[in-house]
């Protein structure tokens, strides 16, 4: 798999986050333990059941846009960690750490996100205090 200029493989980056298994596809599809940091432009944020989707455009090594889908849990599950319907706005540049699919498809499970103002949001169960940091 080609990882783009804006995509940094963050192996053992000190992230000790974990995510609860997702429901509507097999959890085994994810490369558990692998962490990929995607930096890209928000195209759409779907705050909906059964899982939320963050669609971001990330450029690969050739400078071509790749549409990534970063998934997280249902709104009611991630709300306490700070995720809201208006958390991500189209056109903003965000950094998202995901556990990617094993097979190379541009799909991952969100472990952490960093918003343009520096706010960091974690997974479900993350302390709100840690989820809403001052920039």
């Amino acid at each position: 798999m080609t990882i783009g200029r804006l995509v940094v493989l963050a192996v053992a980056a000190g992230l000790s986050l974990s995510a609860a298994p997702s429901a509507h596809h097999s959890s085994s599809a994810f490369d558990t333990g692998k962490k990929l940091v995607l930096k890209g432009v928000v195209k759409q944020w779907i705050y909906s059941n059964p899982h939320c989707f963050l669609m971001i455009e990330v450029k690969n090594d050739a400078g071509e846009p790749v549409q990534w889908v970063a998934e997280t849990q249902a709104p009611s599950v991630i709300f306490p960690a700070g995720y809201r319907r208006d958390t991500f706005k189209p056109g903003e540049v965000v950094s998202v750490t995901v556990e990617p699919f094993k097979d190379g498809r541009p799909f991952g499970r969100i472990l952490q996100t960093q918003l343009p103002d520096g706010t960091t949001l974690g997974v479900a169960g993350s302390p709100p205090a840690a989820s809403v940091q001052a920039p």
Partner: peptide, 15 residues
């Protein structure tokens, strides 16, 4: 959800 997921599964934009 299934539509988005299946769109990705087809490899749209995959490298």
């Amino acid at each position: 959800y299934n539509r988005i997921f299946e769109g990705t599964a087809k490899g749209k934009g995959a490298q």
